[in-house]
Amino acid sequence: EVRVRALYDYEGQEHDELSFKAGDELTKMEDEDEQGWCKGRLDNGQVGLYPANYVEAIQ
């Protein structure tokens, strides 16, 4: 698992997508798939998908 930080706001479009604001931190659980989606977990425990290019790894 990798900690990542959102670069942009994202509003989930489907029930299985996460929503977050730029600057939020979350945990990447799985690497992106061929469509460019990652599985992650918000700090509130919600698990879902998000676009991989909306986040950067925290060093």
Rank of each mutant, 00 (worst) to 15 (best):
E1D: 02
E1S: 00
E1I: 10
V2M: 15
V2A: 05
V2P: 07
V2Q: 05
R3M: 06
R3S: 05
V4R: 02
V4E: 08
V4I: 06
V4M: 14
V4C: 03
R5Q: 07
R5L: 07
R5D: 00
A6H: 00
A6L: 00
L7A: 03
L7D: 04
L7K: 13
L7N: 05
L7Y: 03
Y8C: 05
Y8P: 02
Y8D: 15
Y8E: 12
Y8A: 14
Y8T: 12
D9V: 01
D9Q: 02
D9M: 03
D9K: 03
D9H: 04
Y10D: 01
Y10A: 12
Y10G: 01
Y10I: 01
E11N: 15
E11V: 10
E11R: 08
E11K: 12
G12D: 02
G12T: 10
G12I: 01
Q13V: 08
Q13S: 07
Q13G: 09
Q13H: 08
Q13K: 07
Q13Y: 03
E14G: 15
E14Q: 12
E14S: 14
H15R: 13
H15C: 06
H15M: 12
D16I: 07
D16N: 11
D16L: 09
D16F: 11
D16E: 14
D16A: 09
E17N: 04
E17H: 05
E17A: 10
L18T: 01
L18P: 00
L18S: 01
S19L: 03
S19F: 03
F20V: 02
F20P: 00
F20T: 00
F20K: 01
K21Q: 10
A22G: 09
A22R: 08
A22C: 08
A22Y: 06
A22N: 06
G23L: 05
G23H: 06
D24I: 04
D24E: 12
D24Q: 15
D24R: 03
D24H: 10
E25C: 06
L26R: 00
L26C: 02
T27L: 10
T27I: 13
K28Y: 10
K28D: 01
K28H: 11
M29L: 14
M29S: 05
M29R: 03
M29P: 01
M29N: 04
E30S: 11
E30M: 10
D31T: 09
D31H: 09
D31F: 11
D31C: 08
D31P: 15
D31A: 14
E32F: 11
E32G: 12
E32W: 10
E32D: 11
E32H: 13
D33L: 13
D33K: 07
D33N: 12
D33R: 10
E34Q: 08
E34S: 12
Q35C: 08
Q35N: 09
G36V: 06
G36P: 06
G36W: 05
G36K: 14
W37L: 14
C38D: 01
C38G: 09
K39G: 03
K39A: 12
K39L: 11
K39R: 14
G40K: 01
G40P: 01
G40A: 05
G40N: 00
R41C: 02
R41D: 00
R41Q: 02
R41S: 11
R41A: 09
L42T: 08
L42D: 11
L42C: 09
L42N: 15
L42M: 13
D43H: 07
D43P: 09
D43G: 09
D43M: 11
N44I: 01
N44E: 06
N44W: 02
G45W: 02
G45A: 05
G45I: 00
G45S: 05
Q46M: 13
Q46C: 10
Q46G: 12
Q46L: 12
G48Q: 00
G48V: 00
G48T: 00
G48I: 02
L49Y: 15
L49A: 03
L49R: 14
L49W: 15
L49K: 07
L49D: 13
L49E: 05
L49G: 06
Y50K: 01
Y50T: 02
Y50V: 12
Y50P: 00
Y50W: 01
P51R: 11
P51G: 02
P51L: 08
P51H: 09
P51D: 05
A52S: 14
A52T: 11
A52C: 10
A52K: 15
N53H: 13
N53R: 11
N53M: 06
Y54A: 08
Y54L: 13
Y54P: 01
Y54S: 12
Y54F: 04
V55D: 04
V55G: 06
V55W: 01
V55S: 02
V55A: 13
V55R: 00
V55L: 02
V55M: 07
V55T: 14
E56S: 09
E56A: 11
E56D: 14
E56P: 01
E56V: 11
A57D: 15
A57K: 11
A57T: 13
A57V: 04
A57G: 14
I58P: 15
Q59L: 13
